[in-house]
Design a binder for these strands. Sequence first.
DNA 1: GGATGGGCTTTCACTCAGTGAAATCGTGGG
DNA 2: CCCACGATTTCACTGAGTGAAAGCCCATCC
Lengths: 265, 265
Amino acid sequence: MHAQPGRSVTSKVLALLDSFTPASPALTLSELARRAEIPLPTASRRVAELVAWGALERGADGRYRIGLRLWEVGSLAPRGLGLRELALPTMEDLYEVTHENVQLAVRQDLELVFIERIAGRHAVPVLTRVGGRFALHATGVGLVLLAYAPTEVQEQTLAAPLERWTELTITDPGRLRRALAEVRRTGYAVSDRQVTMDALSVAAPIRGPDGSVVAAISLVVAHDRADPVALAPLVQAAGRTISRALGTPVRAAATSHVTPLPPVT
Amino acid sequence: MHAQPGRSVTSKVLALLDSFTPASPALTLSELARRAEIPLPTASRRVAELVAWGALERGADGRYRIGLRLWEVGSLAPRGLGLRELALPTMEDLYEVTHENVQLAVRQDLELVFIERIAGRHAVPVLTRVGGRFALHATGVGLVLLAYAPTEVQEQTLAAPLERWTELTITDPGRLRRALAEVRRTGYAVSDRQVTMDALSVAAPIRGPDGSVVAAISLVVAHDRADPVALAPLVQAAGRTISRALGTPVRAAATSHVTPLPPVT
DNA sequence: GGATGGGCTTTCACTCAGTGAAATCGTGGG
DNA sequence: CCCACGATTTCACTGAGTGAAAGCCCATCC
């Protein structure tokens, strides 16, 4: 009497966790069962186990939320808190110098995930959230991550319809392809009003010990008081500093560094 | 041929996640199986599913680490990133005014978990880590969290042997009991060189909408340039600001507020 | 009062997902 | 070459997991 033979217990547990999103971080058992496509009794049993362990917590309102224990374990992710800890001092420097928004992101599949954000109180408001996802083809960090992603990822992104946010968003695959080539040539990316009409971002790659691009850092500034070309070296230097903290051999990091900057030894 | 009848699949999956600690964030499959006390073939299967979903990631060295997907889900924990987002602006204010370390922690069972930390470059070095755990009976945040914890938690802590870090650490249950009463009376806690001989911390409670203490905030300063009594109102005010952000009715927050401060309306 | 409904838990008989010992498959030393 | 170590696959067995249905709890409404 197994309704969906082939469905593993583990996949059900993970589907339950998957049901939580930034938009709905608190769910009743029924909602959980519906979203995870699991019969209610089964959901009840799995959820009880997750609560006992601390992966979920049940609030006074009877709704379930992600538990602190899961946050703790998640904080051990090298690409999450680990990266953040290494990058934060440099991000703060960048903020102190510019007083603009500083963002740090990595690629997960065909999207990017924001790892950290320093939002100046007087800087342009940005709609990103730490832990939130976004498409790769519009933001500065996204363009960098896409430009240095495996060919397969690029092709999949170019093949899918490219969502539009403003009239300046690149939605033509050919134009995007050329933009990515430009990013690789210069070593930084500029996204001019592609997400909102008031902001512009300049991003640079962050490389891991093997020289591959593992993350991207960007400055988001008001488009009318911005000079992307002037900001680029600043962001690139920050990217290189964090790369070094990650253990990048200097040679590898320098490989794609084209703009004339004094060697950061 | 079930070796440990009564062991659920879910418990095995969670035991695998439990195997990762700040001290060992990268494990081979064999290590995982050993720590989780699961036969290797079984561990292999469960781990494969976790990797497919993104809960774990396998590095170039063959070791497994916590994956970004788990970090993402964990970031939805209200007591984790949720609390941090609400508290951060106030914590930054506190840092700007004092240029000392600011810490934010919640209680999980009989320990505390650090949610966020602002560590000034020129402030005393602290050995805490975001996502890290610590005992309740020594730090400022710990004393606050313990003082307002359910009686059961207090009794369990008092019954167990109290670990000592310095010659000033409170290890006598009677003295601890009196210290907790003092915290409740004054509405703040001072931990003077109880963890390291160079630092002192002053902590205050953060209350949730129902008036219960859900977190604690503290300043950690060098013990020789510190005046706890002068710092207390500052930290308490910060605690109340964050409480308000959490939706605390003003009355409830004021209930245990004894030190004369102008009403923060 | 009691009828209705929404949300959750328990019962119960069935069965396939999960299991682990053993064999197999790398891979890297010596 | 063989050995050691780690990881994966095979295979026959079985109890953990299952879900329909019934039961339970607690509002809310008439």
